[in-house]
Computed example of a mutant assay.
Amino acid sequence: MRVVLSNSSGVPLYQQIKEQVSTAILSGELVQGSALPSVRVLARDLRISVITTTRAYAELAAEGFIVTVPGKGAYVLPLDSALVREQLLRRVEDGLQAALDAALLARLDRDGLIQILDGLLQAGHEYASAQEG
């Protein structure tokens, strides 16, 4: 797992870490039981405060992505966690809200928005079928 931080993005560093780690877990790059770098090692590698990495790990744990075992480290939890599902639903809602905001600016009506969504769903199903076959 590689974490890349940007000081100019306007997003707090702990949030950037949290988002990149959770994305790696959701994508399967980090699987259940995978050990994460220690808070101190990650802080050293990223050249940031231990407090920043501690906060990122604490939020990942609170959202059900990881568990921290005192003296042992942080490990990825199974994806079937109810907290992870809630997090995924929140991401879907955020994405749909952003799409709705853009659609309103473009003066796209409900039918146009649904047509775009249907097209994206169809493309997703075709991609998934191609990956299976």
Rank of each mutant, 00 (worst) to 15 (best):
A43C: 07
R40Q: 13
G28W: 00
G73V: 13
A61N: 11
V41D: 14
A74T: 13
A74K: 12
V69E: 01
R55A: 13
V39N: 11
P70A: 01
I48P: 04
K72Q: 14
R47D: 13
I25F: 03
Y57P: 02
G64P: 15
P70M: 02
V41P: 11
A35I: 02
S34V: 08
V67C: 07
V39T: 11
G33T: 08
P37L: 09
S27F: 09
I48C: 05
A58L: 05
F65G: 00
Y57I: 02
I25L: 02
T53K: 01
T53F: 03
A61Q: 15
S27I: 12
V50G: 05
A74D: 10
T52W: 05
G64I: 15
E63D: 14
V31C: 03
V41E: 15
P37R: 08
I66Y: 05
S22K: 05
L60G: 04
R44K: 15
A24L: 01
V69K: 02
S49R: 12
T68P: 10
P70V: 04
T23G: 14
Q32Y: 06
I51R: 13
P70W: 04
L42D: 07
F65M: 02
A61I: 06
I51T: 14
L46D: 10
E63A: 10
T53S: 05
T23P: 08
S27C: 12
S49K: 11
A43Y: 06
K72A: 14
P70Y: 02
A35M: 07
L36S: 00
L26N: 11
L46V: 11
P70H: 01
G64V: 14
A43R: 06
V39I: 11
V69W: 00
S27Q: 12
P70D: 02
